[in-house]
Structures are given as structure tokens and as C-alpha cells.
Write a protein that binds this DNA or RNA. Structure first.
Lengths: 158, 158
DNA sequence: GTGCGAATACTCGGATACCGCGTGTCCGAGTAAGTGAGG
DNA sequence: CCTCACTTACTCGGACACGCGGTATCCGAGTATTCGCAC
């Protein structure tokens, strides 16, 4: 799995905690988490293209949440970074070479292997879609009560 | 996702259909599905290492199922090919650079982001573990009634 | 005809190259803020 | 004091290299078969 997913979620969490109209810049995130700024910027651009963030150009610019954190799911993030293609791609080897099966195969039916893998991936996507940034935020606050103020302080929002 | 997973499942399915003590060789599988024989061999070796297949050396050798197809799950196959490591790896960026959070973080608790991703991946693994080769076999036979005899015929088992 | 032994051909298995994609970096276009002068 | 235009500095955004893991391949070790020969 692409490492940018983890970065993206943490960035979105920070933006959720620093609930403000004034945006946060790539440089600030990179400094906070000790990440390569340029590469992080690339990932954030993907979030903008996916409509999760909106970018503010110019001095004192940066990124803002494009919609409330409660309406951003993990599936949105993963899809934005990894792309919409499923992890398992069926190459239909069942009807290569010896194509005898295909003769009796009921048309319109999917390869059973592909169907099984898609069921599993659907379960994964369902779980991702059921978890929002806000949910993770609450869980983190439960684990570390002072984290909200700590993050706001780390970004200069006293 | 590694392409070998699809190949492995189809090979296991073929072995389940051709229910016989005499093994099937890499060359036969490669011919049936039009796959590169050497690379396919590499994947089958992984299945042997994982204990899903047992190899028979020598002339007329090949591979046999190491245990009944009903006791081989998709999770077994994926783990054998992809390895046991989870797809999402948490690099703990939450406490790099500004480590202020960690001061208040309740010790022994996992990063909330990691926890969320692990929940999703657990759902995926649960679905994979609930589906056996036999289950896929039955579904395929439902889609294509004559497939069992077709496969047996393709491998010379008349 | 039968038993034995060597040659054989076929198999798996690990060691070895190739290549695409994720990883990492850089520089330019664009814009808001800041600054100074002029009215 | 207010307005305005210019300079400035900082931001995002896309275009450009690097390295590793999946992809693909080849050749050697080992064994069951098979053929031939002796009995």
C-alpha cells in the first residue's frame, strides 16, 4: 500500500483539529511529521484533485478541508491516493489457451475467482467507507486526551 | 496485488477438479492457461513452502493438493503468495518531529490511523478466510455446468 | 519370461537479469501580502 | 491619513531522476521411468 495514505490521513486529522479558515501549508505539515516536503506536496495535490482538500495559493496559502471531516471517509482518502482501480485485477486466464470451458460457460457471469476476490475487497472498502476522519479523531482523543490542544499549538493556533 | 494470486487459485481449482493421486506438472498448467512456465513455477514453489501443495519430483512428477480443497482458504493463498505482512504499514509519523502528542498519549495504545486501517484489512482477511477453494469450485460449476468434465479432459483425465 | 542395471528424459528448485511503478526531488507560474510613495 | 501600484516572498503545481520489488528467465540437482541385456 502506498505510504502517502498514512500521510494524507494525518494531514486531514491535523486540519480537522485546527478548525480554522486560515490554511496550513505543505511546509508546516512536513516539519511537523518530518516528511520530505516535495513528495508530501505531491500527495496533497492528489487530495485536491479528488476534492478532499482545497488549495489556497499565494503567500500564507496552503490547504483547507473541502468538506467537513465527518464527511470524509478513509475510502475517499485511499481512493484519492491509490486510484480507483481494484487491487486484484482479473486477467481472465480461465479462457486462455484451452478455451473449452467458455463453450459451456453461462454468458454474462463473472469468473468465480474474480467474484470471490471482489467480495473480499468489497468488505475492505465497506469498512473503509464506514470510518470517517472525525471518527478517527475521536478515537485518537480517547487515547491521548490532550492531543487536540497539542496539535493546535503545534500549528501556532493558540 | 501480485498477479500470481490469480494463477495460484486457478491451479488449485484445477487440482481440485482433477481429483487424482497422479500429480499435474507446471508445464501442463502453463499450457492450459497460456502462462510463462518458469514464473508460474516460482509461484507454485511459494504454495509448496506455505504447505498448500506438495511437490512430486522426477519424471511424471508435478504438484498435488497438500490437503482437501475445502480446507484451503483464499487467505491461505494470498498469504502464501503475497507474504504475511499487512498491506498498510504504520510508520508512526504521529510521534516524529513534534513529539508533543506522545507526552499525553496513553501508553500501549496504537495509532488511531493504524487501528482504523487494520480494522479494514481485518474485514478483508475475514472475507478471504471464509471462502475456500471448494466454495469457488461450486460457484464456478454453477456458472458453467460442464466445467468439471472439461477441466478433467483438458488434463487427460478421461 | 524375468530381474537387474544403466541411460534417459522429465521434473522441481534456486540463482540470475529486466522493467515498471512508487519514491524522491527540483524549478517555474501565480498570487496574496507587505511596502513605499503620492495625493 | 488614505489609496494605489510595485516589489517581494511565499505558495502550489507539474515536469524530471532514482531505486526497489514484482516480473520473467535460465540452468543445475534429483528422481521415476524406460530400455536393454544377462540369466
Amino acid at each position: 500500500m502506498n505510504q502517502g495514505v498514512e500521510w494524507a490521513v494525518h494531514v486531514l486529522l491535523s486540519l480537522a483539529w485546527v478548525d480554522d479558515d486560515v490554511p496550513l501549508s505543505t511546509a508546516q505539515f512536513a516539519r511537523s511529521y518530518d516528511l520530505p516536503p516535495a513528495y508530501l506536496s505531491k500527495q496533497l495535490q492528489a487530495l485536491v484533485r479528488a476534492g478532499l482538500l482545497e488549495s489556497v495559493p499565494g503567500a500564507k496559502g496552503g490547504f483547507r478541508l473541502a468538506r467537513p471531516a465527518g464527511q470524509i471517509t478513509l475510502l475517499d482518502v485511499v481512493t484519492a491516493i491509490e486510484g480507483p482501480e481494484p487491487a486484484f485485477v482479473c486477467t481472465e486466464i480461465r479462457q486462455r489457451g484451452m478455451g473449452e470451458h467458455s463453450a459451456t460457460t453461462n454468458p454474462g457471469t463473472m469468473c468465480a475467482v474474480n467474484a470471490a476476490m471482489r467480495r473480499a475487497e468489497l468488505a475492505w472498502r465497506r469498512s473503509l467507507a464506514s470510518q470517517t476522519i472525525t471518527g478517527i479523531r475521536m478515537e485518537a482523543e480517547d487515547h491521548a486526551p490532550g492531543i487536540a490542544d497539542a496539535v493546535r499549538g503545534a500549528y501556532g493556533r493558540v
